[in-house]
Simulated assay, not measured.
Amino acid sequence: MLRRAMTLIVSAVLLVGFTLAALAVPVPYVVASPGLALNTLGELDGEQVIQIEGHPVHEHDGALSMVTVQYSGGPDARMNLFTALSAWLSPSQAVLPEEAVFPPDTSAEEVTQTQAAQMDNSQDAAVAAALNELGIAYETAATVHTVSQGHPAEGVLRPGDVIVEVDGEPVADKDEVVAAVKDRSPGDPVRLLVERDGGKEEVEVGTVESGAGEPVIGVTVETDMTFPFEVEISVGRVGGPSAGMMFALGIMDRLDPEGLTGGHRIAGTGTIDPQGNVGGVSGVQQKMVSAKREGAEYFLVAAESCDQTFESAVTGQIEVVRVETLGEAVDALEAIRAGDTDALPRC
């Protein structure tokens, strides 16, 4: 009996030991938790989040808060199974495969650099979208960013060239250049007028067929924007494109004498493009928790992300408003200011 009891005890101890060891093994998962909520109308480290120079600005009550997700884990700091299981049981956290945040063969530093670039691009797009919504003109230019080796443009075009005309027709942005080049058959040449080194030069570039069967010359073109006044947005080390819509609304509030919120506290998430289209984002459940902790009354979310709101731990505790464009977001804020919220589009 004593030997049998000792065997059972030893087996139990070993089982517990193996279980604890298994729980301590690093696993390739990432935990998403509610992150920072930052009022774009307020301050960060003693400075205005949105600073505008060269145009009259205004300050108003209320909040237009961007919200973020905080990630833990990853290739350089893997969590153990116990931590992952604990997060999986939490109503405000999500457990994701590591590759959902850190693509294969990509370091954490590269991910950070990509997110920083996305943040910069989203801020430029937010300024453009805000000015478009307000009817304030700004200048655009179609600038060559890269030239592909082995394509017709190699040796003819250079990074930094500004494409002014295509086949004699003026172009002002990336979309107009792409549309003009596509308006021919693969193999046909295209005449370009470019600005280079302070002068203008006309060049002819051949075309080849892309994988999609369309004519291409072998360059990437981006739309560079020059605004009539300076807008600087400071959010610390936050990265990614998902605050674009809230940046655009914050800029508009600073430029509008009456303001957009009517003193209400609004939070939201969604990307933005210069035309004011609001795109979907991930981590909405965690962002809604951050918004609620910040005291937000309403949460603006891209229509593409509506399905995520139903899984949030705070659904029903905060008014969720669905938007597809910056104009719709502005209309929603106008209804909130007026107290006429029954017709607000909801997820």
Score class of each variant (00 low, 15 high):
residue 250 G to K: 12
residue 288 M to W: 04
residue 76 D to P: 03
residue 216 V to A: 07
residue 54 G to K: 05
residue 272 I to E: 14
residue 28 P to G: 07
residue 69 V to A: 01
residue 100 A to G: 13
residue 171 V to E: 09
residue 183 D to M: 01
residue 176 E to Y: 00
residue 346 R to M: 12
residue 122 S to E: 14
residue 205 V to W: 08
residue 165 E to K: 04
residue 267 A to M: 08
residue 208 V to W: 00
residue 322 R to L: 01
residue 62 G to Q: 07
residue 306 C to E: 15
residue 143 T to A: 13
residue 219 V to I: 15
residue 286 Q to I: 11
residue 46 G to W: 12
residue 29 Y to L: 11
residue 46 G to T: 08
residue 67 V to R: 04
residue 311 E to W: 06
residue 24 A to F: 03
residue 103 P to W: 13
residue 251 I to L: 05
residue 117 A to V: 04
residue 297 E to D: 15
residue 252 M to N: 00
residue 316 G to C: 04
residue 345 P to M: 08
residue 129 A to L: 11
residue 9 I to E: 13
residue 232 E to A: 09
residue 169 E to T: 03
residue 95 V to H: 03
residue 133 E to M: 06
residue 231 V to P: 09
residue 59 E to D: 15
residue 276 G to Q: 12
residue 127 V to H: 02
residue 288 M to R: 01
residue 76 D to C: 01
residue 99 E to R: 07
residue 173 D to Q: 10
residue 73 G to W: 06
residue 90 S to F: 00
residue 148 S to Q: 08
residue 9 I to A: 15
residue 116 A to W: 12
residue 33 S to P: 10
residue 242 S to I: 05
residue 37 A to S: 15
residue 252 M to C: 03
residue 232 E to R: 11
residue 104 P to L: 09
residue 292 K to A: 06
residue 289 V to K: 05
residue 161 D to F: 06
residue 204 E to F: 03
residue 347 C to E: 12
residue 307 D to Y: 12
residue 232 E to V: 09
residue 83 T to W: 08
residue 153 A to K: 05
residue 114 T to Y: 09
residue 39 N to I: 07
residue 281 V to A: 05
residue 169 E to P: 00
residue 283 G to T: 10
residue 213 G to H: 06
residue 187 G to T: 06
residue 1 M to W: 02
residue 77 A to C: 00
residue 194 V to T: 02
residue 250 G to N: 12
residue 8 L to P: 01
residue 298 Y to G: 01
residue 173 D to N: 14
residue 29 Y to N: 04
residue 177 V to P: 04
residue 202 E to N: 02
residue 327 G to K: 06
residue 237 R to C: 03
residue 233 I to P: 12
residue 205 V to N: 03
residue 342 D to V: 01
residue 323 V to P: 04
residue 98 E to R: 02
